[in-house]
Computed example of a mutant assay.
Amino acid sequence: MDTRFLESFIAIVERGSIADAARQLSLTPAAVSQRIKALEDQIRQPLLIRAGRTVTPTAAGLAIIEKSRQLIRGVEELRSLAFQEEFAGELKIGAISTALTGMLPFMLKDFFAEYPQIDLHVTPGQSIKLYHEVLEGQLDCAIIVEPPFAIPKTCGWKRLLSEPLIVLVPESCTQTDPLQILKDNVFLRYDRNQWGGRVADTFLKDNRIFPKEQLELDSLEAIALMVSQGIGISLLPDWLPPWPEGLAVRKIPVSTTPPQRHIGLHWLHSSPHTHLIKTLEPFLATQRA
């Protein structure tokens, strides 16, 4: 059985459509459909149900999906073993949005010059989602916010940088006391469902501050733009630049020893690509603030 057929099947199940799977695999929808037809012919069972543009697995498809993932991981392990001595192969990385703009662009040039045979595939996402994709083997590693719980012993963790909390205010704001600013003004909240947002929420609770909440967002860039427009103020980490251009804002430290959002590299010790993951950290470490 051609493992490419299984890869196409898995991509369709995870993406929910043949068109999205085709984009992920850099193929045409017709080519992906042909692969599924060949797979179904070999297994002698229909694997997918098509309803318009949406595709869902049949009972037979659900029965083989996890085993299919295991087979693909096994093939990747074989490839990785063959490449162990020469540092070559594909590495699937996840990254939060601020790492995509503040870390990766500045390390990739040197990284590719040193390891031209490593093919990086970068997936953007939120920390919680990327964390679980590493655990499930969908990603080899991820640059995420440090979880608010102990990292399992099955995982590796390398802290890369720490970002202090600041109060972000419009330039027109004349107040200087950060705690009073948080009490007096309309508040744009960093999403509490995000691990970084919980750092800010803990600070507010510890200081018994219950702000006049207007919005709750998971995008730091969007919050900064809204503060610049005078919609409100916010409490968020002072993330690595670049920030959006043309902002009319001021950054006010919350204290002399502010809480911090920690960013790090997360991976599974059992990953078949641990030798490739180790090549990344020295380049990422040079981007620390």
Rank of each mutant, 00 (worst) to 15 (best):
L100E: 13
L100F: 06
L100A: 06
T101K: 11
T101E: 09
T101C: 05
T101W: 07
T101F: 14
G102W: 01
G102Q: 06
G102F: 02
M103H: 05
M103I: 12
M103C: 04
M103D: 01
L104W: 15
L104I: 12
P105F: 14
P105C: 15
P105L: 15
P105T: 12
P105I: 15
P105V: 12
F106E: 13
M107K: 05
M107D: 03
M107H: 05
L108F: 05
L108K: 02
K109I: 00
K109A: 01
D110N: 10
D110F: 12
F111T: 00
F112H: 13
A113W: 01
A113V: 09
E114S: 15
E114V: 06
Y115D: 01
Y115P: 01
P116N: 09
P116A: 04
Q117W: 03
Q117N: 09
Q117D: 14
Q117R: 10
Q117A: 10
I118P: 09
I118G: 08
I118H: 08
D119E: 11
D119P: 03
D119M: 04
L120Y: 08
H121N: 13
H121S: 09
V122E: 11
V122W: 13
T123K: 14
T123Y: 11
T123E: 15
P124W: 00
P124F: 02
G125S: 05
G125V: 05
Q126L: 07
Q126P: 15
S127M: 01
S127A: 02
S127T: 04
I128Q: 13
I128L: 09
K129A: 09
K129Y: 14
Y131R: 09
Y131A: 08
Y131W: 05
Y131K: 06
H132S: 12
H132R: 04
H132Y: 10
H132W: 01
E133T: 08
V134F: 00
V134C: 00
V134N: 05
V134L: 02
L135M: 05
L135A: 01
L135Q: 08
E136D: 12
E136R: 02
G137A: 00
Q138V: 03
L139Q: 15
L139F: 09
L139R: 11
L139I: 06
L139E: 12
L139D: 14
